[in-house]
Design a protein around this nucleic acid. Structure first.
Lengths: 251, 251
DNA sequence: CTTGACCCTGACCTGACGTTATACCTTACA
DNA sequence: TGTAAGGTATAACGTCAGGTCAGGGTCAAG
């Protein structure tokens, strides 16, 4: 701190890193009341500056302004008392921080356990994630980035839910297909739309266009084709057509 | 954090050291909105508890609730990375706080020399009780319960006696360590056994196993480690080894 | 004699809860 | 079966440490 003998509000404020309003406040509650010039301006002495420093240190420790006032105004101001008080505050903080650390550790180990091990769930092939990966190869990095950032915090439960929904949907699609419904039918379109919303909700924004690209991928990429055709031969193509029909309808 | 799947308001509140009102508030501002039972009661899941943990750590770092909300709701939020970062920040803070405490202690002892007034120096950290607390966190509620019920009737003189004994013992351990005794040495083992008996007598039944767990804690829990290492660097680890050696010997 | 930087007070606003009041729900026990 | 205790809910007002204007005075420089 610069060694001057007097300061204006602003000078003291900037000097000690508080706002003018704060000094006004401290004056109002008589925590730090400087002298006044004839024009009413506040004039802080070096002593005031020292007191302010004390105030700030104690405030930093989480003490209330009132308590600080009590202590600084205590006639038999006992430095050791202050120190002891600060010591206990510090040690309490340490206590709560250690507690936080232990819970963080607990959370971390918990997280390790439940961090979505998608491989085991999907037996090696996670279609929705794979989609994003393939899109990446095609230069559509955005979908991949989105998918990555969204899924990285999914828990095992989340993945299970997603998988369940997807499986239920796939069952319906299969039924629809096996019952010789046309891909343009309302029923097929509804399922296509459901699929789009599923992707959109859990993985990355999926517009109609994006969805059509996906449909194409389902027949052109062997891995996808196999995934769907394993359920029922021709299902991949059926899905693609349904997606196209749905996209047209939505426009 | 205890591993339960659901909590009531009060349960979660006490568990995480906040008030019920705070949880209500967080619900009101949609920072942490739990499910509701049919009667309208809030029901917090483990996920909620994790989120609360995040909130509290961030709050402690001086972030506004609004900013915290922003962050936690950000899809790019990487939970585990953040946890790790926070852990290091917290433990750094602990480090600097302990530093401050030691310098306060220095100042205090300086003052003590000038006056006659000692006592209450250890107002902050009482290792034996802290042990029980930590064990509680680790799920060994029995020790904590025992410790609580035994200590609640202790008088001031009792505490002084305990403290004295513990300090005397600690001095001996320090000497033993600084004189390059091995932790397997008879001398070290004797001190370990003395320590076990001390706990057993004053706080809770302490078997060899329990004692070994304690030893582990002394090196893994920063607060203990610091407590012992402040006496002599490496003392915590030394004590742990001595405890292990003593346990083996007694079997 | 104006302009811009400072200063004043007063009044209302804010964030993060604390406190109090009133009422409902659930459980234990007489 | 009733009732008392204790947990829960909402609602509404209080608090603390300032932030943010608004309206007006002061002062040195150009």
């Amino acid at each position: 701190m610069e060694k001057r003998d007097t300061y204006s509000v602003k000078q003291l404020a900037t000097l000690s890193g508080v706002t003018v309003r704060t000094l006004h406040h401290y004056d109002a509650i008589r925590l730090l009341s400087p002298h006044r010039l004839l024009n009413g301006y506040r004039l802080y002495t070096y002593k005031d500056a020292l007191r302010l420093q004390q105030i700030l240190v104690n405030r930093e420790m989480g003490m209330s302004l009132d308590a600080i006032k009590q202590r600084l105004d205590d006639p038999d101001f006992d430095y050791s008392k202050t120190l002891v008080k600060q010591r206990t505050i510090l040690s309490e903080k340490i206590g709560s921080y250690t507690q936080m650390i232990t819970s963080i550790d607990a959370a971390l180990s918990q997280l390790d356990k439940q961090k979505g091990d998608t491989m085991s769930l999907y037996a090696g092939f996670n279609p929705e994630q794979y989609e994003a990966e393939v899109k990446e190869k095609w230069g559509e990095g955005e979908a991949y980035a989105q998918s990555q950032s969204r899924t990285k915090n999914y828990t095992n439960e989340d993945w299970q839910l997603i998988k369940q929904k997807e499986e239920a949907w796939l069952e319906q699609l299969k039924k629809c297909f096996l019952e010789n419904e046309l891909p343009q039918s309302l029923r097929a379109c509804a399922l296509a739309e459901e699929h789009r919303l599923h992707i959109d909700k859990w993985f990355y924004p999926c517009s109609g266009d994006m969805h059509q690209q996906l449909g194409d991928m389902y027949v052109s990429d062997d891995r996808f084709k196999e995934y769907y055709d394993k359920k029922a031969k021709g299902l991949a193509a059926f899905l693609q057509k349904a997606i196209y029909a749905n996209s047209k309808k939505s426009m």
